[in-house]
Amino acid sequence: MNTIVCVKQVPDPEIPPAKFKIDPETKKVVPPPGVPPVISVYDERAVEAALRLKDKHKGKITVISVGAGKVSDVVRHALSMGADEGFVIEDGAFENLDSFGTATVLSKAIQKIGGYDLILCGRQAADWGAGQVGSILAEILGIPVVTFACGIEAVDKKLRVRRVVKDGFEILETPMPSLVTVSSEIGLPRLPAGMSLMLARKKQIPVWKPQDIGLDLSDLDKEKAHTEIIGLSIPTRKKECEIITGTTPAEAAIQLAEKLSQLF
């Protein structure tokens, strides 16, 4: 079975909180120097889900990523995990794409690749975390979508998807092709370790421009975007700790109890 996985490059979410800086003017995050971007965690798990299916049913995994700058590293990461082929779709116009814009670009690329049984996305991105691209993409392509998957099986040309819900799991059956968004409960992605790690280093990753996928940039016109970020701020977090003192520890405890009971 052939799977297409959509991955996104994000600023490393594990930078120390104190190093997290934003530029309120441009409404952008300013990544600290020397910290390379990484593949979005849920997308990495989507790659893992694809690999698990491939381990069982063979087939081909194609990985794509959309970006304004150089995003081939995340595709390379997926290749080093064991994906077969990767493409990036790059253009300066892709800066600040909203979910609809991203899904539009992806849909064009996917239509160019064709021949898929399954499309996988992360449940949301680790940066802006809009959590919509997968569903919108499925609507554009006109295929069913199952969200928050924690397990995918292929049975009789159908997909059985185990899905995370609040109080447990649901198992859904959906035809091929479908789009499935993957949640972290699927488990840790494999460490890119085997031969694929070395082979991926040297692999050429074709870069597609909008015209290569038949995308009319006016479709992404800023005015046609649905939402606009008008502000970005770091929530103020009281850094000073109020040390509660008392003549005895018990007395301090009583004062603390007073303060805490106001929280409820």
């Binding site: 930078i15 120390p16 120097p33 020397g34 990484v38 990461h77 460490l191």
Partner: peptide, 23 residues
């Protein structure tokens, strides 16, 4: 696995958040 993952994606074995520092 955690350590190796960090080495692979971040170039060092300390998970970013384990350290309050940058390189």
């Amino acid at each position: 696995q955690l350590m190796l993952r960090n080495m692979q994606s971040r170039g060092h074995p300390w998970a970013g958040i384990q350290s309050l520092r940058l390189r």
